[in-house]
């Protein structure tokens, strides 16, 4: 399969794994995370990426207490198959 390289950083928050504590939103330097207006099944407004200007700094990842709610893809990340973003 063809190797692809991510040309701009990306952050994904898994809605069902987010507990809506807001620490990532508070910590994000470019302020590109916000609460989604919807609730997840646990009843939390979950954090979500506004879709642009993520710098891939990883600060949200370390601010987040959940093991896998947030995944940060940095620029230059190599992947195959489905698009990251």
């Amino acid at each position: 399969m063809e190797k692809k390289i991510l040309d701009k950083p990306f952050v994904r928050v898994y809605p069902e794994l987010c507990k809506g504590c807001e620490l990532c939103i508070d910590a994000c330097p470019p302020q590109v995370l916000k609460f989604h207006e919807k609730f997840n099944s646990k009843g939390y407004h979950y954090a979500t990426y506004i879709g642009e200007n993520c710098t891939g700094c990883g600060i949200c990842y370390y601010a987040c207490p959940e093991p896998e709610a947030i995944v940060v893809y940095k620029k230059g990340y190599e992947y195959e198959g489905e698009e990251v973003a």
Partner: peptide
């Protein structure tokens, strides 16, 4: 039910420390 979320409360520091250790 999902076996993916720890039992800790939202914002609990244990989660961060766990992550750092792991």
């Amino acid at each position: 039910s999902d076996k993916k979320s720890p039992h800790y409360c939202p914002g609990c520091g244990h989660g961060n420390v766990h992550k750092f250790i792991a």
